[in-house]
Simulated assay, not measured.
Amino acid sequence: MSILSELFDDLTALLFPRRCAVCGTPLVRGERTVCTLCRTTAPMTGYWREADNPVFRRCWGLVPVERASGFLFFVQGSGWRELIHAFKYRGAWRTAREMGAWYGHFLAESGLYGDVDLVVPLPLHPFKRCRRGYNQAEYLAEGIARQLGVPVERHAVCRRRNTASQARKALRERAANVEGAFAVRRPERLAGRHVLLVDDVMTTGSTLLACAAEILRAAPDCRVSLAAFAVSRRELGVKE
């Protein structure tokens, strides 16, 4: 980088400081999206290092997944909740991609996801996608896929029912709400592959599991793993 470029960047940072998406403090040179302190103190699960973890155990007896993990614990009232809501509802898709790359780095480093062939974002219904303007899971998937060195498959799976929000629904109601919500349009793109299915937040896991089950039904010779950016301690039965 030239001296003039460095001076321009310094001046831009002075006049229009980039702020941490979690705590709001100005970012310093070398920091991206989230400051070093917030990254260091993030409520990480560590589940990407463990083949047997609470997210994986949530799938037992329901869907035969290869691997399953969550990156952060979803903490109500925290800056991390605001970061997730920003990329989920307020157009901060670049943040989703950056967070996906951060998560993907750890997935790749763990060695447990080294045989993943492609990454599939959990699809949104066309109506919801049109209203929101994007699917945040696609940007998380892009960041993860870049770190794993594999492609993103956006078109093989679709959402054919515009389901109601899962919030405030009981476990049984959540499962019924997403029953038949997904369809695999191009099973040949998934056949024989190890698919990593990605979503932003996993609470009970009903939505991810419904989609994973449909993928395995349509392409029975493929393998499916799950990756959620944030997971709920309470729903997983994990103590603080």
Rank of each mutant, 00 (worst) to 15 (best):
residue 87 F to R: 04
residue 99 M to T: 14
residue 139 Y to L: 08
residue 92 A to C: 13
residue 75 V to C: 09
residue 115 D to G: 09
residue 91 G to P: 09
residue 156 A to W: 01
residue 122 L to D: 04
residue 148 L to H: 07
residue 158 C to N: 02
residue 141 A to H: 01
residue 75 V to Y: 05
residue 144 I to K: 12
residue 138 E to T: 05
residue 88 K to W: 10
residue 163 T to H: 03
residue 146 R to Q: 11
residue 116 V to Y: 03
residue 141 A to T: 05
residue 70 G to N: 08
residue 144 I to T: 11
residue 156 A to F: 06
residue 137 A to T: 11
residue 91 G to I: 11
residue 97 R to D: 02
residue 151 P to S: 13
residue 84 I to F: 09
residue 124 L to G: 05
residue 94 R to D: 14
residue 166 Q to G: 14
residue 96 A to R: 03
residue 141 A to Q: 04
residue 130 C to S: 10
residue 159 R to D: 05
residue 84 I to A: 07
residue 115 D to T: 13
residue 90 R to P: 07
residue 123 P to T: 03
residue 150 V to C: 10
residue 69 S to E: 10
residue 120 V to T: 09
residue 157 V to T: 02
residue 102 W to K: 04
residue 114 G to D: 15
residue 127 F to K: 01
residue 83 L to A: 15
residue 89 Y to F: 15
residue 162 N to Y: 06
residue 76 Q to A: 13
residue 112 L to Q: 10
residue 76 Q to I: 02
residue 86 A to P: 01
residue 76 Q to C: 00
residue 92 A to P: 11
residue 161 R to E: 04
residue 70 G to K: 08
residue 117 D to P: 02
residue 107 L to D: 00
residue 156 A to I: 03
residue 140 L to S: 02
residue 118 L to G: 14
residue 133 G to M: 07
residue 144 I to S: 12
residue 147 Q to F: 11
